[in-house]
Design a protein around this nucleic acid. Structure first.
Lengths: 148, 148
DNA sequence: TATTGTTATACTCTATAACTATA
DNA sequence: TATAGTTATAGAGTATAACAATA
């Protein structure tokens, strides 16, 4: 075996931004691998979860909660609906908007994904060992302060 | 003003994975905004930095360092070269590979980006306040342990 | 006038697989 | 056989802007 070459990272080495990127990348890939066997794209998980937790939520409120533009949600929700996981019904109060909820099939898929997420999260907890609350607090603060 | 609706996040609320995603997203956008004025896509920054720090590095070693497949680097490096920022020359020792280095223009652009990155990093440091070393340590550990 | 949601469109980032040329 | 790099191709994810319906 050749030894791996040593690479200098310069200011990236001690940078929160770069470490954040590498950690998120690794975490996302690991979760995608688990979730792939549950047959749903990992990007859909957050949406499914938030709909499940907030039956009747509208698309724009969902978008704000997960930080995505409304135009991003249209095809996402269409796919979930086509897959029979999400139910949409036009609001009677405000006829521009529609209320979202999980179908029984959606609940089942969400339950599966929650299992994957729990396993993934357990792994992350192990890695963070005792520092989890601190870590989550810091990450949320970064998202809030930079997110606007 | 309407009050913002309260949205339940379920298990996402306390999840490292979700917090990581939201924080990275916010950090990336904030940096992209700064870097945009320097006229280079933010995804190029890490590559430029690592080439600058490791003159003569090859594309595959670079890929391993920043966690990207070699096929991802081909067009990236081609663009940097076309923009006159990177110099490529075929290795005489191993004629399959090529050595990369920054041109003077590349050094100049990197210097500008480093300034953006420093400003961005200062902002992140403020947010993390005293916890920066701990935060970086945890993030690196996540990347390492999950990255395999 | 402002907002909900859709559409059209385009951009960025990324990977897999098949390939060439070297080793 | 194995590795460095290229190409062709595809897919996921995202956003901006213009629009229709409704508020």
């Amino acid at each position: 075996m050749e030894p791996l070459p040593t690479v200098q990272l310069g200011m990236l080495g001690g940078s929160i931004g770069f470490a954040l990127r590498m950690a998120q990348d690794a975490s996302f890939r690991a979760f995608a691998q688990r979730a792939g066997s549950a047959g749903l794209k990992p990007g859909r998980f957050a949406a499914l979860m938030v709909i499940g937790q907030n039956p009747g939520i509208t698309s724009s409120v969902l978008g704000r909660a997960i930080g995505r533009d409304k135009s991003t949600l249209t095809p996402l929700i269409r796919d979930l609906q086509r897959a029979g996981l999400v139910d949409r019904r036009r609001s009677t109060a405000d006829r521009r908007s529609a209320h979202l909820a999980l179908t029984p099939a959606g609940e089942a898929v969400l339950a599966e994904l929650v299992e994957c997420a729990r396993a993934h999260e357990r792994r992350l907890d192990e890695i963070a060992s005792g520092a989890k609350p601190e870590l989550v607090r810091l990450l949320k603060r970064i998202a809030e302060e930079l997110g606007g």
